[in-house]
């Protein structure tokens, strides 16, 4: 690389922080500046659009580099997209992270195969106790398990990395929930592809302008 790349700001869901950092380092994308919002917005998607907009405005006040939002729709039902349109900002494709890790078609196939599937990512495996168990109140009220997961049959661990101890942990989550276990290696899926595309499309533009 002969000249430094212009900076790109990424506003990301906290559940993707580790993965984005990994992509940044694997690809030597030194120009990515990543800021995360708390992953717990997951449970209250109605709060995501305003939180993202606030971050956009904060960033814009400091620099005028490109921004990419590392969220799916995440249950905002198009409201996040309305905010992003206002600023001409892109987000990751798809409805949620499970879909963009494994890819839309593959996700649809998994759902078709067994609708009663609960998905875990590296992040969720690591944070299972707090983000799943505790958030759903299962630490205090294990009797709720069947009300939440009564219709579920299997747990699919969509793995971003190859890590035996995470796989073991994911297996133990499945056992706790009484679900059969499967692991699919996805890598960074559409997240990596989107970042790559974003870089290719936007950077020449920026370079021309600067």
């Amino acid at each position: 690389m002969n000249q430094p790349l212009p900076p790109i700001n990424i506003i990301a869901c906290g559940a993707l922080a580790k993965e984005l950092m990994a992509l940044k380092s694997i690809n030597h994308w030194q120009n990515l500046s990543i800021s995360c919002l708390p992953a717990k917005y997951h449970n209250t998607p109605a709060l995501i659009p305003a939180a993202v907009e606030k971050k956009i405005l904060q960033i814009k006040a400091n620099n005028d580099a490109q921004i990419l939002v590392a969220y799916g729709d995440c249950g905002t039902a198009g409201v996040l997209d309305k905010v992003l349109q206002k600023y001409d900002i892109e987000r990751l494709p798809g409805a949620h992270c499970y879909q963009f890790f494994v890819g839309q078609n593959a996700f649809d196939n998994l759902q078709e195969e067994e609708i009663g599937t609960f998905y875990l990512t590296d992040f969720l495996v690591k944070q299972f106790d707090s983000y799943v168990w505790k958030n759903l109140g299962l630490d205090r009220h294990p009797e709720l398990l069947n009300l939440y997961f009564g219709n579920y049959k299997r747990l699919v661990y969509l793995a971003q990395t190859t890590n035996d101890s995470l796989t073991d942990l994911a297996k133990s989550c499945a056992a706790r929930m009484g679900l059969k276990f499967e692991r699919i290696f996805t890598g960074y899926g559409d997240m990596a592809n989107s970042l790559e595309r974003f870089k290719q499309n936007k950077i020449p533009f920026l370079s021309l302008a600067s």
């Binding site: 209250t44 759903l136 109140g137 709720l144 939440y148």
Partner: peptide, 14 residues
């Protein structure tokens, strides 16, 4: 109003 969350609602419903 965001005072109760899903687990509490589920317990009440139960």
């Amino acid at each position: 109003d965001g005072i109760l969350f899903v687990p509490e609602v589920l317990l009440s419903a139960n």
